[in-house]
């Protein structure tokens, strides 16, 4: 009874966490709340869907399910392709919009507003291309297996959890152990000083977009595998993403993941208590609570 929401919450929370990492990175390094980040999840899912469908049409063998999972090899290949394509999309938007605003010395809040405009355009472009009806990677049905007494999960759900964990550990290692990660943290601490020390800020910004968008694509695709793909999926996830990024502490990657899991669990337990129709309000309650009790988040530094 108590275990089943745990599983659903963890799976959903892992997806929120993957998206929240991108939000927290853009927030701490580019210094604005990116309202278009949710659209990167949707675009990631739709790009993967397109690649996977094309692969399935060219080589039908790729569509047959792998082992216990609901999808064939076309989906993992599409995932890699979509990570690259979504990163390209984020770089293109930055080149077209955010980069130009940064160069003209626009205030942070103008960037927030521009991201709001970009989100609307990106979301409705998806709706225009793919229509608003939901899409699926596969039509295969999956039977949930019994893992523990009172706990069932489909192989897909377990895969999502595992994949999210691996992705977060890799990202954390990249940020803490590699020169590129050090450069990112330096820019996040103090952009002027970092560029004096010879760090190429523009390269760091590119890296932030690539990393954030690739993780968003993974999150969107996993959500598409577990639930479904809709043009509004990114918009629906946006509030949980922000709640998780702020709860985890802006700039903290492990914080974003832990907070993502927290938000996912809170949603899934709250659904049991107050009904599924109030799910979207859970993130808002968490957000308000964090802003009142600990505005810097769990792992954040106190702000000026």
């Amino acid at each position: 009874m108590m275990l089943q929401p745990l599983m659903d919450g963890l799976v959903n929370g892992a997806i929120i966490g993957l998206g929240a990492i991108g939000v927290t990175l853009t927030y701490s390094i580019l210094r604005f709340a990116n309202f278009a980040h949710g659209e990167l999840l949707s675009w990631g899912a739709y790009l993967a869907l397109t690649v996977s469908a094309a692969l399935g049409a060219l080589l039908p063998g790729l569509g047959t399910p792998i082992g216990p999972f609901s999808f064939g090899w076309s989906v993992p290949i599409a995932l890699l392709a979509s990570m690259a394509l979504t990163a390209g999309l984020a770089l293109a938007v930055d080149w077209l919009l955010f980069g130009r605003l940064r160069q003209s010395g626009a205030a942070q809040i103008i960037l927030v507003m521009a991201s709001f405009g970009a989100a609307l355009a990106l979301r409705n472009l998806l709706e225009f291309i793919y229509t608003s009806s939901p899409a699926y990677f596969t039509n295969e049905l999956q039977i949930a297996m019994k893992i523990l007494p009172g706990l069932r999960a489909t192989p897909d759900q377990l895969l999502v959890l595992g994949l999210a964990l691996v992705t977060v550990v890799l990202t954390h290692l990249l940020l803490t152990r590699s020169p590129a990660g050090r450069a990112m943290r330096a820019v996040s601490e103090n952009p002027a000083l970092a560029s004096l020390a010879g760090i190429d800020t523009r390269a760091v910004i590119r890296l932030v977009w690539i990393l954030g968008a690739a993780l968003a694509a993974v999150g969107g695709i996993l959500s598409g595998v577990i639930v479904q793909i809709r043009p509004t999926m990114g918009l629906d996830l946006l509030l949980p993403l922000f709640a998780a990024a702020i709860l985890g502490g802006i700039g903290s990657v492990p914080g974003a993941m832990i907070a993502g899991l927290t938000v996912g669990l809170a949603e899934s337990f709250a659904v049991g208590l107050v009904g599924a129709e109030w799910r979207a309000a859970v993130s808002f309650v968490i957000l308000v609570a964090v802003l009142i009790l600990r505005p810097q988040g769990i792992f954040g530094k106190a702000m000026a």
Partner: peptide, 24 residues
């Protein structure tokens, strides 16, 4: 028409971004 209406919103989104860039 539902599809075309979404194009209308794309245009508005682009217009807002363009005004922010070109004529703030």
């Amino acid at each position: 028409q539902a599809r075309a209406a979404s194009l209308q919103l794309v245009l508005i989104g682009v217009a807002l971004s363009a005004v922010l860039l070109l004529r703030p």
